[in-house]
Structures are given as C-alpha cells and as structure tokens.
C-alpha cells in the first residue's frame, strides 16, 4: 500500500493527530485497566497478611485461609470440565459434521442461548429445581457406590452438593467449549475430509483421522477457557453449594469445600476491616489463577492460528 513512486508525505492534519491519539489512548486505557486490576487488588490485599484468626474464620494465617478455597475452586472446575468436555465435543461435532446444513445454524444458535442465560438464573434453577431432584440419585450412589471416596456420603438431603454445583457449572461452560470447538471443526480442510472418505473411511473414521487431529490444540484451548470460566463463576456456586470450607473429595455430602469466588460473594456483604482485605487477597489469587489459565489457552490458540495460516 505504501509503495508509491514518489511518496510525498501529506502534512499531518490536526484531525488525524487527535483521532489517532484517541484511538491509541483507548488501547492504552485497556492495558492500564488490566494492570490496574492487579495493582489495586494487591494494594487492598496486602494488609490481609497481618490478619488475625478472628478475621479469617479461625484459620491461623492467610495461606491456611486461602488453600482450602483454592482446592474447592480447582475441584469444582475439574468436575465441571470432566462433565462438559465430552458433551461439548459431541455437540460441536453434531452441529459441524452431523446435522443437515439447514439445521446447523439454528442448533448453534440454541447452544449459544445457554450462554445468554444470566448466572444468577442458573443458580436459581440449580437450587430450586435441579438440587432437590438430584437427592434420590445421590442416595442411590451413597448406598451402592459408597465404598468409593467420591460417594462416601452421607448423602445431602437438599441436593446442594459440590456435584450439583459442578453440573450447573458444566452447563454454563458447555456453550463456550462448544462454540470454539465448532469453529475449529468446521475449519478442517475439506480436502482432508474428502480424502479420508474417498479411502472408504466411515464418517467416524473420517472425523478421527482428519478432523480431530487438526482440531486438537483448539480443543485443548477451548477446554482451558472453559476451565477458567468455571473457576471464576460465582453466583451459581454461591447459591447452589452448601459450603462449609472443608477439604474433601466427597461429592455428595452436605459438607462441601467452598470456592474462592463463592466465598467472596457470600462473605463480602457482612465483612468489615481486615476481613475485606482477606477476601480481596483471595480474589487476587483467583485473578492470578484464571489469568494464567486464560493466558495459556489464548497462547495455544494464537500459535495454532499462526501454524494454520502458514
């Protein structure tokens, strides 16, 4: 574009200067905001290092206060990912490779609707509808699979367990994993697919041989983005989970680990003094964890993009 024969620079116009400056300034604002998140959380979080046990639910120091919450956050997100990933890949394949062309985009739109539902409504549904209906299955699991540590019970009578919370989380992250996987599946080179089919592969063999290898890094990053979303999700967990802050792998009992986000939402309104700082400090931990996960996921995506475009 810039290679004209004799390039005479046009005089810098005031409008151009102002406009490009504004555009540049807006971009910098974003960077400043992102840095600001970290800086202000650190400033407000640091006083919590000197917090007394009375400010930390009786825990001796900030680390002992945060560790069970980190465990709960990772555990709930992990279960949600285990539930959501196979479903999401199935749905993405259904939309990209199985559904008739005419159905594909309405189906995709319906999946996107799942993402449009506000999280507080998911929480309401989880506590008011899903939880009570999961009590019988939990009792069944307790009786028949109670020898597994996951189902050691005693089964919750309200259904407000970490498994219920994870199921709600799984539903909430399903659309994000589906959307990204679907995008990547439909970008599979047509020739690879046709070649597999021409060699006599069945549809599933074609997908296994050409679509899945092509989409592998995309799926990984989609799952990681879902993981980040699940770890940061607040309201659904805060409402559904009956949390007591323990560290346990038991999925169906009435005493459950809490998550960082849910703990902040539940305790913030009544918190004063150093309690607030302690909550902000846990928020900083959450920010760092989700930032790292998202950073890694986006790095994988952008590397994959580059290798595809070459």
């Amino acid at each position: 574009m810039s290679s004209t024969v004799t390039r005479t620079r046009s005089p810098r116009r005031l409008g151009d200067l102002v406009f490009s400056g504004a555009a540049f300034g807006a971009s910098l604002t974003i960077l400043v905001a992102l840095a600001g998140v970290a800086i202000f959380l650190i400033i407000q979080g640091i006083p919590a290092l000197g917090a007394e046990p009375s400010d930390l639910n009786g825990k001796p120091n900030l680390l002992a206060y945060t560790a069970p919450l980190v465990f709960g956050t990772l555990w709930a997100a992990l279960i949600a990912i285990v539930i959501a990933t196979p479903l999401a890949i199935g749905v993405a394949l259904a939309v990209s490779h199985y559904a008739p062309k005419r159905l594909a985009s309405p189906l995709g739109y319906l999946v996107d609707l799942l993402a449009a539902v506000p999280s507080v409504v998911y929480g309401l549904w989880g506590i008011g509808f899903l939880g009570p209906r999961l009590v019988p299955p939990y009792e069944w699991l307790d009786q028949h699979l109670g020898w597994l540590p996951f189902f050691a019970g005693p089964a919750s009578t309200t259904g407000r367990t970490i498994l219920t919370a994870a199921i709600v989380l799984a539903i909430m992250i399903l659309p994000i994993i589906t959307a990204i996987s679907r995008e990547i599946f439909s970008q599979t080179p047509r020739l690879n697919e046709e070649a597999a089919l021409a060699l006599g592969a069945t549809r599933w063999e074609m997908i296994r041989l050409s679509v899945l290898p092509y989409a592998r890094s995309g799926i990984v990053s989609a799952v990681m983005l879902g993981l980040g979303r699940a770890m940061g999700e607040t309201m659904a967990v805060a409402m559904v989970l009956s949390a007591s802050g323990v560290v346990t792998f038991n999925l169906i009992s009435a005493t459950n680990p809490s998550t960082i986000a849910a703990n902040i939402a539940l305790s913030f309104a009544d918190a004063t003094g150093l309690k607030v700082n302690a909550l902000v400090a846990t928020g900083l931990v959450l920010f760092v964890i989700t930032f790292v996960v998202n950073f890694a996921a986006r790095a994988i995506v952008s590397r994959a993009d580059r290798s595809v475009s070459r």
Partner: peptide, 10 residues
C-alpha cells in the same frame, strides 16, 4: 482476549 476471561467477581 485474556481479559474476556476475567472472573466477574474479580
């Protein structure tokens, strides 16, 4: 892109 993943509570 990374910012889209900031948890709302943060």
């Amino acid at each position: 892109d990374v910012m889209t993943g900031i948890p709302s509570i943060v």
